[in-house]
Design a protein around this nucleic acid. Structure first.
Lengths: 248, 248
DNA sequence: GCCTATCTTATTGTCCGACAATCCGACAAG
DNA sequence: CTTGTCGGATTGTCGGACAATAAGATAGGC
């Protein structure tokens, strides 16, 4: 019959207040936040309380600091920050390799099509650069995996759609461990990826949305075959590789 | 030539340490975290430092507390938490209505197909329930919008793919304001949505993946027409409606 | 025996004050 | 115009304190 009366600790309200101003763009990106002491004065709370609020915003990616800097600045969540949080969430929800694959299958052809329609020359150059890096660096397995991710990222960027660019990252991140296994165990994997990238890049260059979409669908389907050939069960749970990022 | 020497403040290292244990599932979901004092003792830092670390994890959705509770428990990020963070990121990246729409167009048909293939009877019931709610509650505009979102959510859930379920939420959240305008300004919007949902539900019930995908694609395309008829420019920037959630 | 009221204790939220490290900006010197 | 010097401002961390209240234990009533 009655709603629970809402109570929120001060650190929460402070963080919400700042967050709202950022989202309303009253605090512009790149702008420096007032100092902790000043914020404490304005909100009429203790500096410790302000600091707790800042930590929340910091981990949301709304605040960040310049390299080696001290002050906090208003930023927007980077792709890495978004990707980290999302892939972490996927992992905790016990997403399996097949789930990630399915999502890629759904979303990547659309990204490729959009990229083909709207790619700029600069974006095309980045795409080709990523592709060339993959072709040339035969040596290291991990480099190769990173280059594949970079190619997809470049496509997301080329689509000119921030939603695509942001969605791309976490999916690829989760794919990387299993992709590494595929490259290790399936001899023809590299050349298949290489040729798929070539076709894709050509379609994007020619602004051929239909072709890009088709090739991408084929490319993704190839990954699935890769899993089978490499003997990776599709029901393997993905794991966020960056778990052990902590400095000991 | 030289890498910057990495330094990380204590609150960061504490938060990473706890996060790693959660992701490695050494701290199981639902388990209570040690008290702040105990954590401070173990990490050999001050309680204030521990609290800053906890705030970070809390806003990542890795820690939460039971309603009105005091202790913190290990949780996994809820759909709402993930959706909130993501839609916030999209908004700050100045995603436009057309960008969100394009992403929906790419991803929803795949979700519908997966849902049709793998839906359980329970999931189907939820889907029908959401559909029925939308049909019956003609009165309130905001209710209707929520019901549409609930229908999509039910589909994501029915797909049995946590990646889909998590991706669904933020996109829909960003769609809601503009969807409300469509419902207000386009008289036939309700009935078109209603019939699309009907076809979709039928396809899902019949486990007809092909049909579900096709109908979904049509449904999403319809939204675009809705924007045009309602006079909403496709280049409108989306805004995260929950900005003003703060309690004053 | 099970449910309820009461009491204790533990824990969180918040505050205050302090101090070292270091980043920042200005300023002087080569 | 770059490099050294310096004072002030700001952050990171600490210690201790206290009120409010959730959690657990205990006693009492049916």
């Amino acid at each position: 019959m009655f709603e629970p009366l809402g109570y929120a600790p001060a650190y929460w309200r402070v963080s919400e207040a700042i967050r709202a101003r950022i989202l309303r763009r009253e605090l512009a990106e790149g702008e420096a936040l007032p100092t902790e002491t000043e914020l404490a004065r304005q909100f009429e709370v203790n500096r410790s309380t302000v600091r707790e609020a800042l930590r929340k915003l910091e981990s949301n990616g709304l605040l960040g600091r310049r390299r080696g800097g001290k002050r906090l600045y208003v930023t927007r969540p980077t792709r890495e920050a978004v990707g980290g949080g999302l892939s972490q969430a996927f992992a905790l929800h016990r997403a399996r390799v097949v789930d990630v694959w399915e999502a890629l299958q759904a979303v990547q052809p659309g990204i490729a099509a959009a990229a083909a329609e709207r790619r700029s020359d600069a974006a095309l150059a980045l795409l080709d650069a990523a592709r060339r890096r993959f072709s040339e660096r035969k040596a290291d397995r991990d480099d190769a995996v990173r280059d594949v991710a970079a190619f997809f990222d470049a496509l997301g960027e080329a689509s000119g759609n921030p939603v695509f660019a942001l969605l791309n990252e976490p999916l690829l991140r989760l794919l990387q461990p299993s992709l590494a296994q595929i490259i290790d165990r399936v001899p023809q994997a590299r050349s298949r990826i290489e040729s798929a990238q070539k076709q894709l890049a050509a379609a994007v260059r020619a602004r051929d949305a239909e072709g890009a979409s088709t090739w991408m669908a084929r490319h993704i389907r190839d990954f699935r075959r890769g899993y089978e050939v490499a003997g990776i069960p599709l029901s393997t749970e993905v794991s966020d590789g960056l778990v052990a990022a902590g400095v000991s």
